[in-house]
């Protein structure tokens, strides 16, 4: 299904931010979040559902998200997640950190030593 995928090592530290990014745009549940992440990546990245559940538990414990049961009547209830105020702040912080880190990483990975002036 995926034409090419990103190494999990690169993305691992950003799992929580990715989930918060989905949830800040509306409440959602496990499988839907999973599909949205694939969609958002342009079919290039799949975050395993198993990883999501572990992250949900962690984020809920830290107070960044809350969960509630949906009222579907057919085929069982869905468990929805909603971002909290605390979660939004955490997301904004992570975005800032990312903006800062990505410039530095860019030069660290591609930059030539001779280009740098003392």
């Amino acid at each position: 299904m995926m034409s090419s995928t990103i190494s999990t090592d690169i993305i691992r530290g950003h799992t929580d931010t990715i989930i918060l990014n989905i949830l800040r745009q509306g409440d959602s549940y496990g499988y839907e979040i999973y599909k949205r992440i694939i969609q958002l990546s342009g079919q290039r990245y799949e975050l395993k559902e198993a990883t999501l559940y572990t992250a949900f538990r962690r984020l809920e414990k830290e107070g960044f998200i809350v969960s509630y049961w949906g009222d579907e009547t057919q085929g069982g209830r869905r468990k929805y997640y909603r971002i909290t105020e605390e979660g939004r702040k955490h997301y904004e912080r992570n975005v800032k950190d990312w903006d800062f880190a990505k410039d530095i990483l860019e030069t660290l990975i591609k930059g030539g030593i001779e280009d740098v002036r003392e």
């Binding site: 496990g30 499988y31 999973y34 085929g75 209830r77 869905r78």
Partner: peptide
Amino acid sequence: FDLKEELTINMKER
């Protein structure tokens, strides 16, 4: 108990 219910519904949908 809750986790099993959550996993089950999502798997059904998948």
